[in-house]
Structure formats: structure tokens, C-alpha cells
Amino acid sequence: MSEGCKKIEHLIEPYLDDELSKTKKDKVERHLHACEDCQLALEALKLQGGLLREEIEAEADKVDFAGFEDRVFQRIRQEKPPSFAERAGAWIREVAYYYRAVWITSLATAVLLVAILVPLLSRDTTPGTGPEVRVAEADNQVIIDSMEYAGQRSMIFTVSKNNTTVIWLYDFDRAEGQDQGDDI
């Protein structure tokens, strides 16, 4: 494998899947034009994708879907509908997932505001008391708080001793580590 191949190796699949920008696409095409090995690698990927598609299509061709919709409606009428709580839970999960970008930004802003305003307000509302006194009073206090939703977590450590607040926002791939099947 040449240096040129190594440079574009990771782009072959996104190229095949039409996921590259125009610049990267051109780069891959220039290389493919000159490199038979990479052409073959691409052809092999195309072939196996095509074979898989043919296989699944052939299986789907065997199915007679006549009366399918009627059977579905029949079952809908016969089977017990989900409870309000189940439907509400599904709705919340969907909303939480699709608007998580907005939620996370709002949460982060809210957390920062609280972190900044609380120490400031607590000093302002106690005139005559120096910050050193308050620090001494609140010595050894560590508040840890955490929140979680839609696969995102945030953890807040507030250390009163030196007035430090650590906000730790992290997310984890729920699908990797946990069950996926509990969604609706």
C-alpha cells in the first residue's frame, strides 16, 4: 500500500456513500484514477453492498402483502391500546431527543448563571461581612449535583472553601453501553 493509498484509505467508504465534500471527492477521484488497488477495493465494497441489497430485495419479493393493511387495522381494534402514561413517556423521549441541542444550551446557560450569580448575590446581601468570614463559615462544604436527560449528563461541584464551581458537562452514547430496545 502506497503513501497515497494510506492518505485516502479512510475516505473510500464515505466516497462510496456519497458523504464527501466536493474537494475531498475530487481528491479521491484523482487517486482512484491512478491506483488500481484502490479501484479494486472500491469495487469490492460496491459489490458486497449490491449483493446484500439483491438478497434482501429477493426475500421481500417473496412476500404477498395483499390484505396487510386490513390485518393491521384488525389488530389495532382487537389489542389493548397503550395507557396515557406510556404514550406520554414516548412523547417525552422523542421531544427530549429532537430538541436536546436547545435543552443542553439552555441548561448550560442556566447553570453558568446560577454559578456566577449565587456567590455575587450572597455577598451583596450581607453588607458589612467580608468575604473571608463567609468563606470560613462555609468551610469544607462541597455540593455535588448532577442531572441527566436524553443521553446527556451534567455534574456540578460547588466547593465553598475557595468559591470554586466546577460544571462538568458530558454526554455518553447510550446505544453503545446500554439497551436500545427500551425505546418505543
Binding site: 396487510f68 389495532i76 397503550p82 422523542e94
Partner: peptide, 16 residues
């Protein structure tokens, strides 16, 4: 396949 559409019908309200 049938179950999928039953579920879709029931939960269409939660679809965003």
C-alpha cells in the same frame, strides 16, 4: 412488520 405499524399508529402523536 405488522407490529411496527400498530405501534406507529398508536404513537403517531409522539412523532416529532
Amino acid at each position: 412488520c405488522q407490529e411496527v405499524f400498530i405501534k406507529v399508529y398508536r404513537y403517531l402523536g409522539s412523532f416529532q
